[in-house]
Protein backbone atom coordinates (compact mmCIF):
# COMPACT_ATOMS: atom_id res chain seq x y z
CA UNK A 1 0.00 0.00 0.00
CA UNK A 2 2.77 2.39 0.71
CA UNK A 3 3.58 1.96 -2.96
CA UNK A 4 0.74 4.18 -3.86
CA UNK A 5 2.28 7.13 -2.11
CA UNK A 6 5.46 6.95 -4.08
CA UNK A 7 5.23 6.80 -7.87
CA UNK A 8 6.66 3.84 -9.69
CA UNK A 9 10.18 4.37 -10.83
CA UNK A 10 10.62 7.20 -8.41
CA UNK A 11 10.64 5.16 -5.26
CA UNK A 12 14.37 5.44 -4.73
CA UNK A 13 13.99 9.15 -4.58
CA UNK A 14 12.68 9.16 -1.05
CA UNK A 15 14.68 11.46 1.12
CA UNK A 16 16.79 12.69 -1.71
CA UNK A 17 15.18 16.02 -2.29
CA UNK A 18 17.46 17.85 0.05
CA UNK A 19 20.24 19.30 -2.01
CA UNK A 20 22.93 18.35 0.45
CA UNK A 21 23.68 14.87 -0.82
CA UNK A 22 26.98 13.19 -1.15
CA UNK A 23 27.59 10.35 -3.52
CA UNK A 24 26.14 7.26 -1.93
CA UNK A 25 26.49 4.04 -3.81
CA UNK A 26 23.94 1.29 -3.73
CA UNK A 27 26.28 -1.03 -1.85
CA UNK A 28 26.86 1.58 0.84
CA UNK A 29 23.12 1.83 1.28
CA UNK A 30 22.84 -1.93 1.48
CA UNK A 31 25.56 -2.02 4.09
CA UNK A 32 23.78 0.56 6.21
CA UNK A 33 20.63 -1.51 5.94
CA UNK A 34 22.59 -4.55 7.04
CA UNK A 35 23.98 -2.85 10.11
CA UNK A 36 20.51 -1.80 11.15
CA UNK A 37 19.29 -5.42 11.12
CA UNK A 38 19.96 -6.90 14.55
CA UNK A 39 19.73 -10.51 13.36
CA UNK A 40 22.42 -10.07 10.77
CA UNK A 41 24.56 -8.23 13.31
CA UNK A 42 24.24 -11.21 15.62
CA UNK A 43 25.14 -13.45 12.69
CA UNK A 44 28.26 -11.42 12.07
CA UNK A 45 29.32 -11.72 15.72
CA UNK A 46 28.84 -15.48 15.71
CA UNK A 47 30.84 -15.88 12.51
CA UNK A 48 33.51 -13.56 13.85
CA UNK A 49 33.92 -15.52 17.07
CA UNK A 50 33.90 -18.89 15.35
CA UNK A 51 36.48 -17.75 12.80
CA UNK A 52 38.65 -16.28 15.51
CA UNK A 53 38.58 -19.51 17.47
CA UNK A 54 39.42 -21.44 14.31
CA UNK A 55 42.36 -19.15 13.63
CA UNK A 56 43.63 -19.42 17.20
CA UNK A 57 43.75 -23.20 17.01
CA UNK A 58 46.23 -22.98 14.17
CA UNK A 59 48.71 -21.31 16.49
CA UNK A 60 48.34 -24.43 18.58
CA UNK A 61 50.20 -25.11 21.78
CA UNK A 62 51.46 -21.61 22.34
CA UNK A 63 48.05 -20.15 22.86
CA UNK A 64 46.26 -23.16 24.27
CA UNK A 65 47.82 -24.35 27.38
CA UNK A 66 49.46 -27.68 27.69
CA UNK A 67 46.64 -29.29 29.51
CA UNK A 68 44.33 -28.75 26.59
CA UNK A 69 46.93 -29.88 24.16
CA UNK A 70 47.76 -32.95 26.20
CA UNK A 71 44.25 -34.12 26.15
CA UNK A 72 43.90 -33.36 22.53
CA UNK A 73 45.04 -36.80 21.51
CA UNK A 74 44.31 -40.03 23.22
CA UNK A 75 46.91 -40.46 25.95
CA UNK A 76 47.70 -43.77 27.57
CA UNK A 77 47.95 -41.90 30.86
CA UNK A 78 44.25 -41.26 30.66
CA UNK A 79 43.55 -44.76 31.72
CA UNK A 80 39.81 -45.41 31.37
CA UNK A 81 39.81 -46.99 34.79
CA UNK A 82 41.05 -43.70 36.18
CA UNK A 83 37.55 -42.36 35.93
CA UNK A 84 38.43 -39.55 33.63
CA UNK A 85 36.21 -40.84 30.80
CA UNK A 86 32.69 -39.69 29.94
CA UNK A 87 32.65 -37.05 32.63
CA UNK A 88 29.60 -34.77 32.63
CA UNK A 89 29.93 -31.00 32.58
CA UNK A 90 30.35 -28.94 35.71
CA UNK A 91 27.58 -29.23 38.22
CA UNK A 92 26.35 -32.56 36.99
CA UNK A 93 27.16 -35.99 38.22
CA UNK A 94 27.01 -39.34 36.53
CA UNK A 95 28.29 -42.81 37.22
CA UNK A 96 31.79 -41.84 36.13
CA UNK A 97 32.03 -38.90 38.46
CA UNK A 98 31.19 -35.26 38.84
CA UNK A 99 31.97 -32.50 36.42
CA UNK A 100 34.99 -30.43 37.32
CA UNK A 101 36.77 -27.29 36.12
CA UNK A 102 39.53 -29.26 34.47
CA UNK A 103 36.93 -30.38 31.93
CA UNK A 104 34.20 -27.77 31.95
CA UNK A 105 32.07 -29.59 29.36
CA UNK A 106 33.09 -33.07 30.41
CA UNK A 107 35.14 -35.71 28.68
CA UNK A 108 34.55 -38.22 25.94
CA UNK A 109 34.85 -41.99 25.93
CA UNK A 110 38.61 -41.78 25.80
CA UNK A 111 38.91 -39.17 28.44
CA UNK A 112 39.58 -36.32 26.09
CA UNK A 113 38.33 -32.90 26.99
CA UNK A 114 35.13 -32.14 25.03
CA UNK A 115 35.67 -28.38 25.10
CA UNK A 116 39.11 -28.73 23.58
CA UNK A 117 37.84 -31.05 20.91
CA UNK A 118 35.01 -28.68 20.14
CA UNK A 119 37.47 -25.83 19.81
CA UNK A 120 39.65 -27.83 17.46
CA UNK A 121 36.59 -29.02 15.58
CA UNK A 122 35.88 -25.39 14.77
CA UNK A 123 38.91 -25.30 12.54
CA UNK A 124 37.72 -28.21 10.41
CA UNK A 125 34.18 -26.89 10.19
CA UNK A 126 35.13 -23.38 9.18
CA UNK A 127 37.91 -24.52 6.87
CA UNK A 128 35.75 -27.07 5.11
CA UNK A 129 32.72 -24.80 4.97
CA UNK A 130 34.63 -21.89 3.47
CA UNK A 131 36.83 -23.97 1.17
CA UNK A 132 34.06 -26.14 -0.26
CA UNK A 133 31.80 -23.16 -0.74
CA UNK A 134 34.59 -21.12 -2.27
CA UNK A 135 35.54 -23.77 -4.80
CA UNK A 136 31.93 -24.62 -5.63
CA UNK A 137 30.98 -20.98 -5.92
CA UNK A 138 33.90 -20.15 -8.21
CA UNK A 139 33.35 -23.11 -10.51
CA UNK A 140 29.59 -22.73 -10.45
CA UNK A 141 29.79 -19.01 -11.18
CA UNK A 142 32.16 -19.51 -14.08
CA UNK A 143 30.10 -22.33 -15.59
CA UNK A 144 26.87 -20.39 -15.06
CA UNK A 145 28.25 -17.17 -16.51
CA UNK A 146 29.65 -18.94 -19.57
CA UNK A 147 26.43 -20.88 -19.99
CA UNK A 148 24.23 -17.83 -19.64
CA UNK A 149 26.32 -15.51 -21.76
CA UNK A 150 27.06 -17.75 -24.70
CA UNK A 151 23.80 -19.66 -24.78
CA UNK A 152 23.27 -22.10 -27.66
CA UNK A 153 24.77 -25.56 -27.52
CA UNK A 154 27.33 -24.61 -24.87
CA UNK A 155 24.47 -23.70 -22.61
CA UNK A 156 22.59 -26.89 -23.48
CA UNK A 157 25.48 -29.20 -22.72
CA UNK A 158 26.49 -27.44 -19.52
CA UNK A 159 22.92 -27.28 -18.30
CA UNK A 160 22.32 -30.97 -18.96
CA UNK A 161 25.50 -31.77 -17.06
CA UNK A 162 24.60 -29.59 -14.12
CA UNK A 163 21.03 -30.85 -14.08
CA UNK A 164 22.18 -34.45 -13.79
CA UNK A 165 24.60 -33.52 -11.02
CA UNK A 166 21.61 -31.98 -9.33
CA UNK A 167 19.49 -35.07 -9.92
CA UNK A 168 21.68 -37.16 -7.62
CA UNK A 169 20.83 -36.14 -4.06
CA UNK A 170 23.91 -34.31 -2.90
CA UNK A 171 24.75 -36.43 0.10
CA UNK A 172 24.53 -39.52 -2.10
CA UNK A 173 26.73 -37.87 -4.71
CA UNK A 174 29.43 -37.05 -2.18
CA UNK A 175 29.23 -40.56 -0.78
CA UNK A 176 29.57 -42.00 -4.30
CA UNK A 177 32.53 -39.74 -5.00
CA UNK A 178 34.19 -40.67 -1.72
CA UNK A 179 33.64 -44.36 -2.33
CA UNK A 180 35.53 -43.94 -5.58
CA UNK A 181 38.34 -41.67 -4.52
CA UNK A 182 38.78 -42.32 -0.84
CA UNK A 183 37.33 -41.16 2.42
CA UNK A 184 39.77 -38.42 3.29
CA UNK A 185 38.90 -34.89 4.20
CA UNK A 186 40.31 -33.51 0.95
CA UNK A 187 38.00 -35.69 -1.10
CA UNK A 188 35.10 -34.64 1.11
CA UNK A 189 35.86 -31.00 0.34
CA UNK A 190 36.06 -31.71 -3.39
CA UNK A 191 32.86 -33.74 -3.23
CA UNK A 192 30.96 -31.05 -1.35
CA UNK A 193 32.26 -28.43 -3.78
CA UNK A 194 30.94 -30.46 -6.68
CA UNK A 195 27.50 -30.64 -5.11
CA UNK A 196 27.69 -26.90 -4.58
CA UNK A 197 28.35 -26.19 -8.27
CA UNK A 198 24.78 -26.64 -9.51
CA UNK A 199 23.43 -24.27 -6.87
CA UNK A 200 25.58 -21.42 -8.15
CA UNK A 201 25.38 -22.35 -11.80
CA UNK A 202 21.63 -22.08 -11.74
CA UNK A 203 21.70 -18.88 -9.76
CA UNK A 204 24.27 -17.01 -11.80
CA UNK A 205 22.88 -18.27 -15.09
CA UNK A 206 19.43 -16.93 -14.36
CA UNK A 207 20.99 -13.72 -13.11
CA UNK A 208 23.10 -13.30 -16.23
CA UNK A 209 20.11 -14.07 -18.41
CA UNK A 210 18.06 -11.36 -16.74
CA UNK A 211 20.86 -8.82 -16.46
CA UNK A 212 21.75 -9.41 -20.10
CA UNK A 213 18.27 -8.22 -21.00
CA UNK A 214 18.48 -5.11 -18.84
CA UNK A 215 18.23 -1.86 -20.70
CA UNK A 216 21.54 -0.57 -19.40
CA UNK A 217 23.29 -3.50 -21.05
CA UNK A 218 21.44 -2.74 -24.25
CA UNK A 219 22.35 0.90 -23.80
CA UNK A 220 26.04 0.02 -23.50
CA UNK A 221 25.75 -2.15 -26.58
CA UNK A 222 24.02 0.64 -28.46
CA UNK A 223 26.79 2.99 -27.43
CA UNK A 224 29.32 0.69 -29.07
CA UNK A 225 30.91 -0.64 -25.91
CA UNK A 226 32.90 -3.83 -26.47
CA UNK A 227 31.41 -7.17 -25.38
CA UNK A 228 34.25 -7.90 -23.01
CA UNK A 229 33.76 -4.59 -21.31
CA UNK A 230 30.02 -5.18 -21.07
CA UNK A 231 30.56 -8.54 -19.38
CA UNK A 232 33.03 -7.24 -16.83
CA UNK A 233 31.66 -3.78 -16.16
CA UNK A 234 27.94 -4.44 -16.31
CA UNK A 235 26.88 -8.05 -16.33
CA UNK A 236 29.14 -9.60 -13.70
CA UNK A 237 28.98 -6.85 -11.06
CA UNK A 238 25.22 -6.67 -11.35
CA UNK A 239 24.79 -10.42 -11.15
CA UNK A 240 26.87 -10.95 -8.05
CA UNK A 241 24.61 -9.67 -5.29
CA UNK A 242 22.50 -12.83 -4.99
CA UNK A 243 25.67 -14.91 -5.26
CA UNK A 244 26.95 -13.16 -2.17
CA UNK A 245 23.76 -13.99 -0.31
CA UNK A 246 23.72 -17.58 -1.48
CA UNK A 247 27.36 -18.21 -0.67
CA UNK A 248 26.83 -17.03 2.90
CA UNK A 249 23.88 -19.38 3.29
CA UNK A 250 25.77 -22.12 1.48
CA UNK A 251 28.65 -22.05 4.00
CA UNK A 252 26.08 -23.04 6.60
CA UNK A 253 24.67 -25.78 4.39
CA UNK A 254 28.12 -27.13 3.62
CA UNK A 255 29.12 -27.18 7.27
CA UNK A 256 26.03 -29.30 7.85
CA UNK A 257 26.92 -31.63 4.97
CA UNK A 258 30.47 -32.13 6.13
CA UNK A 259 29.25 -32.78 9.65
CA UNK A 260 26.81 -35.32 8.23
CA UNK A 261 29.60 -37.00 6.29
CA UNK A 262 31.79 -37.21 9.35
CA UNK A 263 28.86 -38.60 11.25
CA UNK A 264 28.50 -41.35 8.64
CA UNK A 265 32.20 -42.11 8.89
CA UNK A 266 33.32 -40.29 5.79
CA UNK A 267 35.60 -37.33 5.74
CA UNK A 268 37.54 -36.51 8.85
CA UNK A 269 39.09 -39.65 10.27
CA UNK A 270 39.80 -40.15 13.97
CA UNK A 271 41.57 -38.97 15.99
CA UNK A 272 41.33 -35.56 14.30
CA UNK A 273 38.54 -33.82 16.16
CA UNK A 274 35.44 -32.86 14.20
CA UNK A 275 31.93 -32.15 15.38
CA UNK A 276 30.20 -34.70 13.20
CA UNK A 277 32.60 -37.42 14.17
CA UNK A 278 32.17 -36.58 17.87
CA UNK A 279 28.44 -37.01 17.42
CA UNK A 280 29.00 -40.37 15.75
CA UNK A 281 31.20 -41.51 18.61
CA UNK A 282 28.77 -40.27 21.21
CA UNK A 283 26.00 -42.53 19.97
CA UNK A 284 27.19 -45.45 22.05
CA UNK A 285 27.31 -43.42 25.23
CA UNK A 286 24.04 -41.55 24.97
CA UNK A 287 22.60 -43.17 28.05
CA UNK A 288 25.53 -42.65 30.37
CA UNK A 289 26.65 -39.23 29.18
CA UNK A 290 24.12 -37.52 26.90
CA UNK A 291 26.17 -34.32 27.15
CA UNK A 292 28.71 -35.90 24.89
CA UNK A 293 26.00 -35.79 22.19
CA UNK A 294 24.62 -32.41 23.08
CA UNK A 295 27.69 -30.18 22.90
CA UNK A 296 28.88 -30.85 19.34
CA UNK A 297 25.32 -30.41 18.08
CA UNK A 298 25.09 -27.04 19.76
CA UNK A 299 28.41 -26.04 18.20
CA UNK A 300 27.15 -26.91 14.73
CA UNK A 301 23.80 -25.26 15.34
CA UNK A 302 25.28 -21.98 16.54
CA UNK A 303 27.77 -21.77 13.69
CA UNK A 304 25.20 -22.55 11.01
CA UNK A 305 22.69 -20.13 12.53
CA UNK A 306 25.35 -17.45 12.34
CA UNK A 307 25.78 -17.92 8.60
CA UNK A 308 22.04 -18.17 8.05
CA UNK A 309 21.31 -14.97 9.95
CA UNK A 310 23.97 -13.09 8.04
CA UNK A 311 22.72 -14.49 4.74
CA UNK A 312 19.12 -13.53 5.51
CA UNK A 313 20.27 -10.08 6.53
CA UNK A 314 22.24 -9.67 3.32
CA UNK A 315 19.26 -10.71 1.27
CA UNK A 316 17.01 -8.22 3.01
CA UNK A 317 19.59 -5.49 2.56
CA UNK A 318 19.96 -6.16 -1.14
CA UNK A 319 16.34 -6.80 -1.89
CA UNK A 320 14.11 -5.25 0.77
CA UNK A 321 11.05 -6.89 -0.74
CA UNK A 322 12.13 -10.37 0.28
CA UNK A 323 11.24 -9.76 3.90
CA UNK A 324 8.41 -7.48 4.90
Amino acid sequence: MSDSTVPAGESTRVGSSTEERTAVSRSAQAFRQLKRNSASRAGLYVIGIVTLVALLTTIDADIFDYQFAATFWYHPENDPSGGEILLPPIGIENEFGAGNWAHPLGTDHRGRDILVRLVYGTRIAVQVGLLATGIGMTLGTVIGAVSGYYGGWVDDVLQRFVESLYAIPFLILVIAIMSAFGRELGIAIVGVSITTIPVFTRLIRSQVLSVREMEYVEAAKAAGVRDRHIIFRHIIPNSLAPVLVQSTLQVGVNILIVASLSFLGFGVQPPTPSWGQMLAQSRQYMIVNPWFSIWPGIAILVTVIGFNMLGDGLRDAIDPRSND
Partner: peptide, 22 residues
Protein backbone atom coordinates in the same frame (compact mmCIF):
# COMPACT_ATOMS: atom_id res chain seq x y z
CA UNK B 1 12.28 -22.01 11.50
CA UNK B 2 15.72 -20.40 11.56
CA UNK B 3 16.82 -22.90 14.19
CA UNK B 4 15.14 -25.65 12.18
CA UNK B 5 17.10 -25.00 9.01
CA UNK B 6 20.34 -24.70 10.97
CA UNK B 7 20.12 -27.91 12.98
CA UNK B 8 21.83 -31.09 11.87
CA UNK B 9 19.01 -33.58 11.45
CA UNK B 10 20.98 -36.50 12.85
CA UNK B 11 21.56 -34.53 16.02
CA UNK B 12 17.82 -33.97 16.35
CA UNK B 13 17.53 -37.74 16.04
CA UNK B 14 20.06 -38.32 18.81
CA UNK B 15 18.33 -35.86 21.12
CA UNK B 16 14.96 -37.45 20.43
CA UNK B 17 16.35 -40.86 21.23
CA UNK B 18 17.86 -39.58 24.48
CA UNK B 19 14.62 -37.95 25.57
CA UNK B 20 11.91 -40.24 24.26
CA UNK B 21 13.61 -43.61 24.21
CA UNK B 22 16.14 -43.60 27.03
Amino acid sequence: SLVGVSTPSFWVGLLLIIVFAY
